[in-house]
Every structure is written in C-alpha cells, then in structure tokens.
C-alpha cells in the first residue's frame, strides 16, 4: 500500500514537473491531466474514494476541458494547420501515456485485491463528509454557492462581446480583427497576423 502511494506520488510530481517545463500549452495540459489523475489515485489510497471521484470528474473533466477549449480557441487560424502537424507527431504522447499506464496498473491492482484489503489509513465515509458538510459547514456551502453564482455572472460578462457600435474605439489595431471575426467568439483571432499585424 505504501509502495503504491509512493509510486503514484512520484508519478504526480513527475507529471507536474513536465507540466511546467513544456513550452507548448497542449503538451503541458496533457501532463497536467496525468498529474490530476495520479492525485486522484492518491486520494483513493488515502481512504477518500468520493473525493477521488470528484477530482476525476470536476478537475480532470470540467476544468481541463475548459483549459483545452480556450487553448484551442486561441490557436485558430490557418497557421493552426501546420501546427497540428507538429503536435500530432507520435513522440509527444509517449510520456503521458507511460505515466497513465502506470496509474492504470495501480488502479487495477488496487481493485483486484479489494476484498482482502486493509487500508493503511482509516477510511472516511462519504456519509460523514455529508453530515459535516451540511451540519456545521452550512454557511460555507452557502458561501460556495454564492461564489459559483458570482463566477458564472462574471465569466458571462467578461466573455460577452459587445455589438459593433458600442465598441471601444481606441483599440484601433484590433477593430479589423473584430470585424473579420464577425463577433463570433470561437472564430476570434482568425488569421490575425495576415490581417492587422
């Protein structure tokens, strides 16, 4: 059990170091996903399977999809085509693949010896978490909901693109880009260096 913990910890640290040393954002995101998955395995070993599931769903699912979406959105344009060719070189996914294979082997091993398992550290049930969450931490839950609502409104407001007549006239070099983009958020930044650079 301790060996598994240290292996997944080593995978997490390795993936994190690879994350911050990549020059390409997409490669870094790949390593970051592997890091999150290894942290989820650590949570499972530490006796918090509910939190491990939440980590995989919310972090590795939602937040990473958001990151990847934005990175891909910023890179649109015709120069993205030859960049895709560079990104899809087979050497780039070998590193994350090896780390993820280590994690999969650990999880399969853990699940296979589940009936006879004695947790090294005691198991905290999700029921206790829920009782604590909605008992003494009820104010915190309300504050978290207010925070999420504020983030929703804020992100919508920041992401909203004004109509052309209301636009800020001083950003002269970006107006051409906006006209070319047609107010479409996804296509913004399209053929930017060819246009107004």
């Amino acid at each position: 059990m301790y060996l598994l913990f240290y292996i997944s910890g080593a995978v997490a640290i390795l993936a994190t170091v690879m994350t911050i040393t990549r020059l390409n954002a997409v490669h870094a995101l790949l390593y970051f996903v592997v890091s999150l998955l290894s942290i989820a395995v650590i949570f499972y070993i530490l006796g918090a399977p509910f939190i491990a599931a939440l980590e995989v769903i919310i972090y590795a699912g939602a937040i990473m999809v958001l990151f990847i979406f934005v990175v891909m959105m910023l890179n649109l344009g015709e120069r993205a085509v030859e960049m895709e060719g560079k990104w899809l070189s087979p050497g780039m996914w070998i590193g994350p693949e090896i780390l993820a294979a280590i994690l999969i082997a650990e999880v399969v091993y853990l699940l296979s010896r589940q009936p006879v398992e004695v947790h090294a550290i005691q198991y905290v049930e999700p029921r206790e978490v829920a009782l604590a969450l909605f008992g003494p931490y009820l104010i915190g839950v309300e504050l978290a909901s207010m925070l999420l609502l504020g983030a929703l409104v804020g992100a919508y407001h920041l992401g909203y693109r004004k109509p052309k007549a209301l636009e800020n006239p001083d950003a002269d070099n970006t107006d051409a880009t906006r006209a070319a983009a047609g107010g479409d958020l996804v296509r913004a930044g399209h053929d930017r260096p060819a246009g107004a650079a």
């Binding site: 939440l54 980590e55 919310i58 972090y59 939602a62 937040i63 958001l66 990151f67 934005v70 959105m73 910023l74 978290a144 925070l147 999420l148 504020g150 983030a151 929703l152 804020g154 992100a155 919508y156 920041l158 992401g159 693109r161 970006t174 880009t177 906006r178 958020l185 913004a188 930044g189």
Partner: peptide
C-alpha cells in the same frame, strides 16, 4: 474544488478578453 472551478472560469474569460 468549488473555488478552483469559479476561479478558472473567470480567469479564462479574462484571458480571452486580453487576447482579443
């Protein structure tokens, strides 16, 4: 987790704005 989700949504919206 809740704070990270909200923070990253606002941060990415700001980042898009800056890019534009």
């Amino acid at each position: 987790l809740a704070m990270a989700a909200s923070e990253v949504s606002v941060g990415l919206a700001l980042l898009l704005r800056l890019y534009h």
